Simulated scan of single mutants.
Amino acid sequence: MRVLGMMSGTSHDGIDVAVVEFSETEGPDGGVLRARLGERGSVPYSPSLRADLVAALPPARPGLEQVCALDVRIGQEFAAAAAAVGEEYDLVCSHGQTVFHWVEGGQARGTLQLGQPAWIAEATGRPVVSDLRTADVAAGGQGAPLVPLLDGLLLAPFVERGLTAAALNLGGIANVTVCAPGEPVRAWDTGPANALVDAAAGGIDRDGRLAASGTVDVKLLAALLAEPFYARTPPKTTGKELFHPGYVDGLLDGRVLRPADLVATLTELTVRTVADALAGVDVVVVSGGGVRNPVLLAGLQRELRARVVLSDDLGCPAGEKEAVAFALLGYAFATGRPGNVPSCTGARGGRVLGRVTPGRSGLPATTRSERWPTALHLS
Rank of each mutant, 00 (worst) to 15 (best):
A195Y: 02
G115D: 03
V72P: 00
L4P: 01
G125T: 09
G14A: 11
E322S: 06
V256E: 15
G289A: 11
K321S: 13
R368P: 09
V32N: 06
Y89N: 03
R348I: 01
D189F: 02
R73D: 09
L70K: 01
Y230D: 06
D136M: 03
G346N: 11
A260G: 04
T233E: 15
G41K: 08
R337Q: 15
L170E: 05
G354V: 11
A193N: 07
G315Y: 10
A195C: 15
R292I: 00
Q113W: 06
S287G: 15
A334S: 14
G239D: 07
L353V: 08
R34Y: 00
G5P: 07
P145R: 01
A135Q: 14
G250Q: 12
D52F: 00
Y89A: 02
L64K: 00
Q301Y: 03
G250T: 11
A318V: 12
T237Q: 08
M7A: 05
A18E: 06
A222V: 12
V216I: 13
I15A: 07
P192V: 11
T367C: 09
D312R: 12
L154F: 08
T265R: 04
G125I: 07
P47Q: 08
P234C: 11
A279S: 14
R209G: 06
L278H: 06
V324A: 01
G172D: 10
G140R: 08
Q142C: 02
G339M: 05
H101L: 05
D13E: 11
L170Y: 12
S361K: 05
A325Y: 03
A69S: 13
L278N: 05
R355D: 13
L163N: 01
G86N: 09
L4G: 05
A83V: 04
A298S: 15
R36T: 15
A222G: 13
V185I: 15
A199S: 15
D198N: 15
H377I: 14
F229V: 08
Q76S: 00
